[in-house]
């Protein structure tokens, strides 16, 4: 009886040890690296300092040309806006958005790179902002 009991405990311990040591790959940000190779932007939003949208209409995302075209209201303070990207599952963005971003240099559009879930595909998206015409 005692022998069975010890065997059972030993099996349980080994199982736990094996499970806890199984390694799931994570990247430098601690995010899970998956098998997904898709790499695109699904949606793009631009919020003003008051966290309200500054877009006049939906942003046009071209996943082939890897561009995002967005028109903002006249008078938008482009030095203080919050971009929001909706990415395909498991993908991530580089550089990370950690607060307000300055989009005021319209001649030099910002570029964000989408990195796929498997971290093997990288696609740079250029964000072109245009301002509603001056009255």
């Amino acid at each position: 009886m005692k022998k069975y009991f010890i065997t059972l405990i030993a099996i349980t311990l080994v199982t736990f040890a094996w499970v806890s040591c199984t390694d799931f790959p994570v990247d430098e940000d601690g995010l899970l690296i998956t098998t997904r190779g898709q790499c695109y932007v699904g949606n793009f939003e631009l919020l003003g300092a008051d966290f309200q949208t500054v877009r006049t209409k939906a942003a046009v995302i071209d996943t082939t040309a890897q561009t995002i075209n967005v028109e903002v209201f006249f008078g938008t303070d482009l030095k203080n806006v919050y971009p929001q990207f909706s990415l395909v599952t498991d993908a991530k963005l580089d550089p990370k958005i950690v607060g307000k971003v300055d989009f005021s240099d319209l001649a030099n559009p910002k570029v964000y790179t989408v990195i796929s879930g498997n971290r093997l595909v990288k696609k740079p998206y250029t964000v072109y902002v245009t301002v509603q015409a001056k009255p």
């Binding site: 209201f73 008078g75 015409a133 001056k134 009255p135």
Partner: peptide, 24 residues
């Protein structure tokens, strides 16, 4: 308060030193 067909302006509070674009 200004309304335009080409741009959204409506009610505004601007500093006197603001660009003339914002105090037409």
């Amino acid at each position: 308060y200004r309304t335009y067909t080409t741009a959204t302006f409506n009610h505004a509070l601007v500093a006197p030193a603001a660009s003339p674009d914002y105090k037409p």
